[in-house]
Amino acid sequence: MEAVSVLVFLAVFLTALGLTEAGSSDRRLVMTRIKRIASRDAGKEEPTAARQRAELWRRLLTWAGGLSLARRLGRLADKKLEEADVLLRGGEFIVIVLACAVATSLVAFTITLNPAGSLVLGLTAAAMPFVALDAARAKRLASFNAQIGDALTITANSLRSGFSFLQSMDMVRKELPDPIKKEFTRTIKEISLGTPTEEALENMARRVNSEDLDLVVTAVLIQKQVGGNLAEVLDNIAETVRDRMRIKREIRTLTAQGRISGLIIGLLPLILGGFMMVVRPSYVMELFSSRAGWTMLTLAVTGELTGLLIIRKIVDIRF
Rank of each mutant, 00 (worst) to 15 (best):
D150S: 04
R246G: 06
G90T: 01
L123W: 07
R140N: 03
T155V: 13
D178P: 01
Q223E: 04
V6R: 14
A77H: 07
M1V: 09
I314C: 11
S105F: 06
K313C: 06
A132I: 11
R33C: 06
S164I: 00
E304F: 12
P47N: 08
L309R: 14
W57V: 11
T218E: 09
A50C: 11
W294M: 07
L7Q: 10
S68V: 10
S158K: 01
E2M: 10
E2A: 09
I154F: 00
R244Y: 06
F130V: 01
R259G: 04
E202Y: 08
G66N: 02
I188R: 00
A77M: 07
R72I: 12
E304D: 08
G23Y: 05
Q52M: 15
I148C: 01
E202V: 10
L234D: 00
L308G: 00
A151V: 04
W63K: 10
V208I: 13
S168A: 15
L60N: 08
R207I: 01
L159T: 03
R59Y: 07
A70F: 04
W57I: 03
I264H: 05
I271H: 02
E82D: 01
R242M: 09
S210L: 01
D178R: 15
N145C: 07
A42V: 15
K79V: 01
M245D: 11
R312Y: 11
T255L: 10
G307L: 07
A16D: 11
S289A: 14
G227Q: 09
A103G: 05
L67C: 01
T48C: 12
L268R: 06
L14H: 11
R58K: 15
S261F: 10
D41K: 14
G74H: 04
I271E: 00
S261G: 12
Q223M: 05
D134A: 14
D150T: 03
